[in-house]
């Protein structure tokens, strides 16, 4: 099962197979060296309805590069890192491979959590059972529109961390931190699971504000994917900036975090 560290965590996301299939394990290692605590590795699906233009484009390119679920597990297996990995993908790829086999394959290459943006808790029975059986965390997204009764149901099944969607819409780097972030964080603060905020995070300053606002981790994707266009050299530095921001935010946050223990 997935565990976040005690200090404010950085969870970068990128699309496996972009910019190339071969760079996939290198990118994971570069994130690790840049201070990432978990790496979220996207398995590209042809219809990414939750993603904005940056990640859509990377997914298209990754598929053209020949990224498939088999290649994905192979390449991830080649990465030499000690930090846990999380798989983010859409449900059809999981169903097609077979839910149980998909989860086993994840476990076998060091993937300890799964996020499926088009699988609401209502449809999660099969994946939840397989994850429980194989000791893999199932991460759910909580949106600004999530109602209280839905929040209850999501929190009954979530593990590893809860992914707080900072704003409505799709993934993509933004210039500011959405006000909705703090509303959602307040609504989940009573639950005993780490809170990771994503959707629009692109700067160290964002990470700092978000952690100061009560988050245990920040997720950033599009900003890294943009930086990977010409190679993976730049991502370590961006990771360090975001991690540093998160750590600073942690020092400034009011220390009342029983929920974090």
């Amino acid at each position: 099962m997935l565990e976040l560290p005690d200090e404010p965590a950085l969870i970068p996301y990128f699309v496996a197979g972009y910019p190339s299939v071969e760079s996939t394990p290198d990118a994971i290692e570069a994130f690790g060296e840049g201070g990432a605590d978990v790496v979220e590795v996207g398995l590209p699906f042809s219809e990414p309805i939750a993603d904005g233009p940056t990640i859509q484009n990377a997914i298209t390119r990754a598929l053209q590069n020949g990224m498939t679920p088999d290649v994905y597990f192979d390449k991830i297996g080649e990465a030499d890192v000690d930090i846990p990995l999380v798989c983010m993908t859409y449900y059809n790829l999981i169903m097609k491979r077979g839910v149980d086999k998909f989860v086993r394959d994840c476990k076998s290459v060091g993937i300890e959590g799964i996020i499926v943006p088009d699988l609401p808790v209502d449809e999660s029975d099969a994946l939840y059972e397989a994850c429980e059986e194989h000791g893999v965390s199932l991460v759910f997204i909580v949106a600004p529109t999530t109602t209280d009764d839905r929040l209850e149901r999501i929190m009954e099944r979530v593990s590893g961390f809860v992914y707080v969607q900072a704003r409505l819409g799709t993934t993509g780097a933004r210039d500011d931190v959405s006000g909705a972030t703090y509303d959602v964080l307040r609504r989940v603060e009573g639950y005993d699971v780490p809170k990771a905020v994503g959707f629009g995070v692109s700067k160290g300053e964002h990470a700092r504000e978000i952690v100061r606002g009560g988050a245990d981790a920040v997720v950033a994707g599009s900003v890294f994917v943009e930086g990977m266009e010409d190679g993976i050299e730049e991502i370590g530095q961006k990771a360090r900036e975001l991690k540093q921001g998160a750590l600073e935010g942690g020092q400034e946050a009011p220390k009342s975090d029983e929920s974090n223990v």
Binding site: I49, E123, A143, T145, T146, I154
Partner: peptide, 24 residues
């Protein structure tokens, strides 16, 4: 919990952000 099934087909495989609107 899952709704709107026709012999196993159907359901609601959409992002969480949309689910409340669909319920509404």
């Amino acid at each position: 919990m899952s709704k709107g099934k026709f012999e196993g087909y159907g359901g609601q495989y959409v992002p969480e952000a949309i689910m409340p609107a669909i319920d509404e």
